[in-house]
Design a protein around this nucleic acid. Structure first.
Length: 424
RNA sequence: GGAGAGAUGGCUGAGUGGUUGAAAGCGGCGGUCUUGAAAACCGUUGAGUCUUUACGGGCUCCGGGGGUUCGAAUCCCUCUCUCUCCGCCA
């Protein structure tokens, strides 16, 4: 959520920044709502003040044994107009809040301005795409002979799921272990295990609700539960409503979890294979930091995710998403894109974002400033380190040989204890 | 699933319709004393929000939501969560 003060004091400038994201603020409506809010709130509070002092007076009069009947009558009348004002105020406030809750974060000044993903900026490229002396197969063809079973998954659940068997399932597990160990022992993250189901407060806090409801799997029943689309939801919500001490910062968590996404609106995109599934494994990096440190942390978290690809010797590039391509909560995002030989292009495998105070404001997640003694909003960051399903895809495609064997990169040897995945 | 007990500030914990945003203790911060420290003593110490250039002032908040009342932490309804006992269970 944006700071409501921005919309009061700096509405024109804020609207201009959102324009770069392709968002048009209804400025006249916001202005009018804000004016009404202000007038109603002032009136309401005056009336409440009046009621409070008069009620206290009744208490005092009663204690002295005076006749309080006339006072009652006055207050009843006052209460009528108070009730009316309260209703009007609540209505305006709700309308304003609903509007505010749907406004995305403002892009950081360093974010390239653009109209579509075509305007994303390549920051750096690592590694050389391998030259094949045969036509490389895609992961679906390769996987078919390695234990990747889509028909079985379709029977169980439907499209956009996968069953993995044998060494391929083990390879996925090895990737998870490898990533966790790397981030824990070399990058200083604490491992954390969390629920994969979250309530509406949590999903509002990280920004999936109300705007991105369509992307979520909702559970039936009267509890308003959702499957998490990323462990970011669960991990970041551990600090909801908290006031942290300064010396607790930064908090750095690494979390492996499955992620569940409805992929509504992506019909026809990546329908085959493991690129875009309803359920996938992810190792996620989270940081909760002092506001002055968040851009430093953003570079760091990106480097941490890159390290995974470097150790696996997978060519990739880092892309700074332009204003039009930023996610709802992000002020700035670097995507990591890995080379996929079958598609002859780079594909997203990680997304590292600084949400600044956008999430923490929704969450009321704060730290105490020792100078002033006052609570201040923390900044939150998230980065995939990495999406495991897509890493598996990249591994198969980049490490294949002409016979469909897959070489295991040396970084994984300790977890796999074999040199090749062999087709059967 | 059955029976019962709870949810109050950073923590422990009192409060039961009226000057209670809340006793007391602990913790935190400031001070006195001391060469320094401890102890003791004194003071101070919740969050959010509105308004104001500021000083200040107001409003809201005692798990969430709703209700009764001139007035609710306190009474009623409801939901959530926690604890104890029984049953079931990976």
């Amino acid at each position: 959520m944006l700071d409501p003060k921005l919309l009061r004091q700096d509405l024109a400038a804020t609207a201009a920044k959102l324009k770069h994201r392709g968002i048009t603020l209804d400025v006249p409506r916001l202005q009018s709502l804000e004016e009404q809010r202000k007038a109603l709130q002032t009136r309401l509070q005056d009336l409440q003040n009046d009621r409070n002092t008069r009620s206290k007076a009744i208490g005092q009069a009663k204690a002295k044994g005076e006749n309080v009947e006339p006072l009652f009558q006055q207050l009843k009348e006052l209460n009528d107009s108070l009730k009316l004002t309260e209703e009007q105020f609540t209505q305006i406030q709700t309308e304003l809040n609903d509007l505010l809750a749907r406004i995305p974060n403002l892009p950081h000044e360093s974010v390239p301005i653009g109209k579509s993903e075509a305007d994303n900026q390549v920051i750096r490229t690592w590694g050389e795409p391998r030259k094949f002396n045969f036509t490389p197969k895609d992961h679906i063809d390769l996987g078919e002979k390695l234990g990747m079973d889509f028909p079985a998954a379709t029977k169980i659940a439907g499209a956009r799921f996968v069953v993995l068997r044998g060494t391929l399932a083990k390879l996925q597990r090895a990737l998870i272990q490898f990533m966790l160990d790397l981030h824990i022992t070399e990058h200083g993250y604490q491992e954390i295990y969390v629920p994969y189901i979250a309530n509406t407060d949590s999903l509002f806090g990280t920004g999936q609700l109300p705007n991105l409801k369509e992307d979520l799997f909702a559970l039936s029943g009267d509890q308003n539960f959702y499957l998490i689309p990323t462990s970011e939801v669960s991990v970041i919500n551990t600090i909801r409503d908290d006031i942290l001490e300064l010396d607790q910062l930064p908090l750095k968590y690494v979390c492996h979890s499955p992620c569940f996404r409805s992929e509504a609106g992506s019909y026809g995109k990546d329908t085959r294979g493991m690129i875009r599934n309803h359920q996938f494994e992810k190792v996620e990096l989270l940081q909760i930091v002092h506001p002055d440190k968040s851009y430093e942390a953003h570079e760091e978290i990106t480097r941490h995710a890159e390290t995974v690809l470097q150790r696996l010797e997978l060519p990739y590039r880092v892309v700074s998403l332009c204003t039009a391509d930023l996610g709802f909560a992000a002020a700035k995002t670097y995507d990591l894109e890995v080379w996929l030989p079958s598609q002859n292009c780079y594909r997203e495998i990680s997304s590292c974002s600084n949400t600044e105070a956008f999430q923490s404001r929704r969450l009321k997640a704060r730290y105490r400033d020792p100078q002033t003694g006052k609570p201040e909003l923390v900044h939150t960051l998230n980065g995939s380190g990495l999406a495991v399903g897509r890493t598996l895809v990249a591994l198969l495609e980049n490490y294949q040989d002409e016979d469909g064997k897959i070489k295991i990169p040396s970084a994984l040897k300790k977890y796999m204890t074999l040199d090749y995945l062999l087709p059967f």
